[in-house]
C-alpha cells in the first residue's frame, strides 16, 4: 500500500500536470486507504494549485494552463469533499462575493481569482459575469460577506465599481465589507479614487491582498 505522503504527492502532481481525469482515481485510492479527506484537500490538491500558482508567477504557466489545472483540483475535490467530517466541512471561512460588473462579459480573470481564493481557503460566492450592481450588495448582505471582489476588462464599465461602493455606503454596510477590484484597465489610483480597499493585478496577488485585509481585520477585532 502506498504511504499517505506518496498519494498526497500524486494528488498534487495531478493538479500541476493537468490530469483532470487521473486525479479522480488517485483521490479514490487515497480515501480507500483510509486517509483523512481534509489532508488530501489541503496537502494534496491545494498544494498542487499553489505550485501551479508559482509556475504562473514564474511565467511557466499562463491562464489556459491555470484553468485546466483548476479543473483537476475541482474534480479531485468532488471525490474528497463528501468524505470530510461534519465538523471539518462546517469550519467557518471568510466569505467572498465575486463577479464581473454589469456591461462586461470577460470572465477569465475573475474565474482565475475565484479559483485561487478558493484554493487559499476562502468561501466563494460567484455571481458570474455582467452582474447587476445591486446584486453585489444584495448577496453581500445575504451571506454576511467579508469581501466583495469585482473585475472588469472594459473601461466603459469601470464606473460601476464605484457605484457599488456608494450603494454599500447607502445601505450602511461599507465598514463591514472590504472591496477589492481588478482587471486590465484598473489601476491602484482608480481603486483609491473610488474608495476601494485594494487592487491586484493578478490572481496570485489577489490572494495576498485578501489575506492581508483579513489579517488586518482580525487584528482589529482582536484589539
Amino acid at each position: 500500500m502506498k504511504s499517505k505522503e506518496e498519494i498526497l504527492k500524486e494528488l498534487s502532481d495531478c493538479v500541476v500536470d493537468m490530469e483532470d481525469k487521473l486525479v479522480c482515481g488517485v483521490a479514490e485510492e487515497y480515501i480507500q486507504a483510509g486517509y483523512p479527506a481534509l489532508d488530501g484537500i489541503n496537502e494534496g490538491l491545494v498544494d498542487g494549485m499553489q505550485r501551479t500558482a508559482e509556475l504562473y508567477e514564474q511565467e511557466e504557466y499562463f491562464i489556459p494552463e491555470l484553468l485546466i489545472c483548476s479543473d483537476a483540483m475541482y474534480n479531485g475535490l468532488d471525490v474528497l469533499r463528501p468524505h470530510l467530517l461534519k465538523t471539518e466541512s462546517r469550519q467557518e471561512k471568510h466569505k467572498i462575493v465575486i463577479g464581473v460588473v454589469e456591461g462586461d462579459t470577460h470572465d477569465i480573470g475573475k474565474n482565475l481569482v475565484r479559483i485561487m481564493l478558493e484554493a487559499a481557503g476562502y468561501e466563494m460566492h460567484d455571481l458570474g459575469r455582467d452582474v447587476a450592481l445591486q446584486s453585489f450588495v444584495d448577496k453581500a448582505k445575504e451571506i454576511n460577506a467579508n469581501v466583495i471582489a469585482m473585475s472588469t476588462l472594459m473601461s466603459t464599465t469601470m464606473p460601476g465599481m464605484g457605484q457599488v461602493i456608494e450603494m454599500l455606503k447607502a445601505e450602511g454596510i461599507r465598514d463591514k465589507v472590504k472591496v477589492i477590484i481588478g482587471g486590465a484597465p484598473i489601476s491602484p489610483a482608480f481603486a483609491q479614487k473610488i474608495g476601494a480597499d485594494g487592487y491586484s493585478a493578478t490572481a496570485v496577488d489577489a490572494v495576498k491582498l485578501v489575506d492581508k485585509l483579513m489579517r488586518a481585520e482580525s487584528e482589529k477585532i482582536g484589539a
Binding site: M18, D20, P64, L67, I68, D71, T105, H106, I108, N111
Partner: peptide, 15 residues
Amino acid sequence: LNSLIDVTKIFKAWR
C-alpha cells in the same frame, strides 16, 4: 469564440 462558448473548453480540447 468568447461569445459562443467558455473558452476554457477550447484550451482543454486543444490538449
